[in-house]
Structure formats: C-alpha cells, structure tokens
Design a protein around this nucleic acid. Structure first.
Lengths: 248, 248
DNA sequence: TGAAGTTTGTGCGGTAACGTACAAGAGCGA
DNA sequence: TCGCTCTTGTACGTTACCGCACAAACTTCA
C-alpha cells in the first residue's frame, strides 16, 4: 500500500513514465493522505518534498503582506506541487494548500533531483509540466484583470471538477472567495445566479455540479484554453476529450 | 561587433557564466537591434530564437481572444525572452514585444538546447531565471487583482527604469494602459497624480523619472518583492542594491 | 431538543475603473 | 507656417465589486 505499482497510478505525470523509469522512481514515493485545509508548502520556506496528487487537488496561492491571498494555480492528478524545486530552487515562493481531502505521492526534493538527473524523459516531462503550469498562472493573471466574477467562478468550478473527478465538492463560498480574491458576498451572488440557471446546486458547504455543459458555457475562454494545454501535455487529441461525469 | 566578448556583455545571465562556458556559448550569439514595437514572439507560433537583451526591455503579454492584452512580465538585461524554449516547448504561449529600442543577443532555440545540455551551470542558471520569472508573473496576478492603478503604474515604471537604465522613457500612456490592462484615460489620471507629486514628468510620449525614491514609495510591495528575487538570483546582498541613476 | 457555530442571503453606501466622447496641446511634415 | 496626426486632459453616466453589517438557514453536538 505504501509503494506504488504503475498500473494503479492515477497521477498522470507518474503514469506517463516508461516502465523502467517508473521502476527507478517508485522507491522514492511514499503515499500520504492530505487533509482539507492542510498546508503543503509555505511561502519562503524550504521545499522538503514535492507532492504528486492522486485524488483531490492542491491550490497554489500568492500571498501579499497584508494577508491577501489569491489562487494562481490548481494542481491535481495532472501535475505536481512544488515546481520551484523542479527548477532548482530551495524555497517555495507560493503557498500551497490542499482544498479537498485526498491522496498524494510524496517525494523528497533531493530524490526528485536525483531522478530528474538520471531519467531524461522524467526530467523533460516535469519541465513541460512546469511550462503548462506557467501558462495557467499567466492566463489566470489576465483572467483576474479582465473577466467577470461569474465567468471566473464557473472556470474555477470546472477546474475543481476536472481535478477531483467528482461532482460534489465540499467547498464553502468563503473558501472560493479567497481563491478568487473577492468578497464572500460577491461569490454568494454569482453562485446564486449559477444555481438559478440550474447549472449548480449547493447547500452549506457542498456544491454539486448539475450541468457540466452549462458550466462550460458560463465560463470564460480561460478554462478551455488552459485545459487544452494540459491535453497537449499528455498528447491527447484536441477533440475526444474525456470528461468527468456529471450529476443527474 | 557581431560576436561578443564577455567583459563587454551587459546581459547578466551571459555575464554570470564562467569564461570557459561563455566561450562555448559565444559563437551561438548574434547581436540584433530591436525596434520599438517590434514583435519578438507571437502567441502560438514557434520559437525560433531566444533573446538576451543588452539594452532596452521586452514585454511578455497574455492575449485573450477578444484582443485584450495584459503584460505578465518584463524582461531586460537580467533575463531572456523565450522561457518556453528553455522548458522544452516549441511554441510560445505568450506574446513578446519590444517596448523600447534596444540591442539583444539572439540565439537559435536548437543552440540554446545544445548549450544547456553541455553546460550544466548555464542550464541551472536558465532554470533559476525561469523560476524568478514565474514569481514575477504570479506576483503580477495578485497585484492586478488587489492593488490600485496608481501603485501598479509606479511599480511598472520602476521595472522599466531598472531594465532600461535611463530616466527618460519613450512611452505613451496608451502603451502603458495596454500593459496594465486598463483604459488609457485611467492611466492619464494616475500619471497626473504622480506628476503633481513631483515624482515623474512627462510630455508627449516621453516620461522622465524625477524622484526615484518617491516612485518606490508610491509603488506597491510587488516591486520590491520581485526585485529582491532578481537580486537573489544573481547572488546580491539584500542591501547595497545598485540603483539606476535618477534625473535631477 | 435546544444551543452554538457555520454557512449563506441580502442590503446599502462608497469607489475604482469602465466605456465613450470630445477638446486641447505637441510635434511633424509639406 | 499651416495643417495633420499623435498624445493627453477631462467629463460623465454606468457598473462591478468593495466593505461592512445583520439576518436567516442549516448542521452539529451536547
């Protein structure tokens, strides 16, 4: 249970490795459970381990000195938390926090570097992931400046749906407001509109995605644009994209 | 004139190389002149060459489908335009455009990869630069969402000052408005306030920084926070930072 | 079943920036 | 020197979101 076998791996970076590469990397992985709200990395602190999520997702957050938080990227089974370590840095510039309960593979930073040095394909994959994550952050910057909250909320829920794989998300509007960098009451209004349109349903910390297509239509282009980059990373066709299931 | 000698190099990434490494890299460099407004990379196009600025600076821009532009990062002599190529991608996700006349060293992407593979210190330096650039983008995302335009304008002017090294910047308010993702008239109001405070002076496409310290005080924390990361990249002490000169 | 804590709805004055329009000033070329 | 173009100032109604406050609804647990 503590050590992975590749057929059971859901993290797509690890799953994309050739069997020989995976065999070399597997002993460095330890399965850990992530709790809702658990801090993964703290801004300015050292990165001891990186995390390859299996289920659930992790938010990367920029933190300003007045305590303001803003999500800059979501990390799920398609990625890894701790891109700074991949690039050779010892400290995390962003805060990383688990937004759902979940399971992840933990790897010590020193092992990550060793593996990246010895497995060229692994290194290339990690760097390409860094690039797509970078694109996600850049798109988020433009999105925050230009798109309305309703669209951004829809976009965020789509990202959370993709990464969690479930239609019922344990999320308060308060938490979402922090992620999107707006007032909680502003989220409340935008969420009410989505609910009125029959796209989502929610009560008391539980959001249900009822109409995935409707949610995609309500979101800005930023969702599809970033999702396309992730598909490209894993060599998927632009069409025939596998979609997470939708509630009745 | 077409080939560099290291003592004359102003680009700090190239200047930081050991003499032997530089000797290996130098034959790959060609000096080019950049014109104001010249596109360096186009979003979605291939990256044929990367550019190490010597003088002047380049903006990286996110572009949305409605034509909206927003600057996500500034690149001057401390960096290189074309981070995607460093990470192994063939296409640029962002638009890069020269904002001032200037000179840069051009290097073919294939040569960049060859050099990075053969010169480990060069590769490490490039990846660490990518990380700091990433920090800059993330900080900009939070800044756009949270700080007022007056502060953001001051921050942007400081970045332009640092990278150009001159106090007289040939920049219209129209261009600055695009960079900051706001109306031109909004920039006009914010710029007038800075001028009234005696911090800058401007007329018809020429902005002069009169009071550098005043500008730093008018800017949000984001300037200092990112500038500190760049100092760290080049191993400078947090204090004793070299400042560009200020107009009388 | 009652109390306490959490989550959400709603209202309201305030404000930064939008969107647009027009006028005035500055520089450039004929 | 006269116009044309580029750049900047300014105005004004509109809007999205802030900042805050309070009530209502739901959940949990004693």
């Amino acid at each position: 249970m503590a050590k992975p076998t590749q057929p059971n791996i859901r993290n797509r970076l690890l799953a994309a490795l050739a069997p020989a590469e995976f065999a070399a990397v597997a002993p460095m992985l330890t399965q850990v459970t992530l709790q809702l709200g658990q801090p993964i990395h703290r801004a300015g602190d050292g990165i001891e381990d990186v995390f390859f999520p299996e289920t659930g997702f992790i938010s990367a957050l920029a933190v300003l000195s007045d305590g303001y938080h803003l999500e800059i990227g979501l990390i799920g089974a398609e990625g890894v938390a701790g891109v700074s370590a991949i690039l050779g840095s010892d400290t995390s510039y962003s805060e990383a926090m688990c937004q759902t309960g979940g399971v992840a593979w933990k790897m010590a930073t020193a092992n990550l570097r060793k593996a990246a040095a010895e497995q060229p394909h692994f290194r290339e994959l990690l760097l390409k992931y860094v690039e797509v994550f970078h694109i996600q952050v850049a798109q988020t910057a433009a999105c925050n400046a230009h798109h309305e909250l309703g669209q951004r909320l829809a976009r965020w829920l789509l990202g959370a749906h993709d990464r969690s794989g479930v239609v019922e998300l344990s999320l308060t509007q308060d938490l979402i407001a922090i992620m999107l960098g707006v007032r909680r009451s502003t989220v409340s209004v935008a969420a009410a509109q989505l609910q009125k349109a029959g796209i989502i349903r929610y009560q008391h910390g539980l959001i249900t995605i009822v109409d995935r297509i409707g949610l995609e239509n309500a979101a800005c282009e930023c969702y599809e644009s970033v999702a396309g980059e992730y598909r490209r990373l894993f060599g998927e066709h632009p069409k025939d994209l596998p979609k997470a299931p939708t509630a009745a």
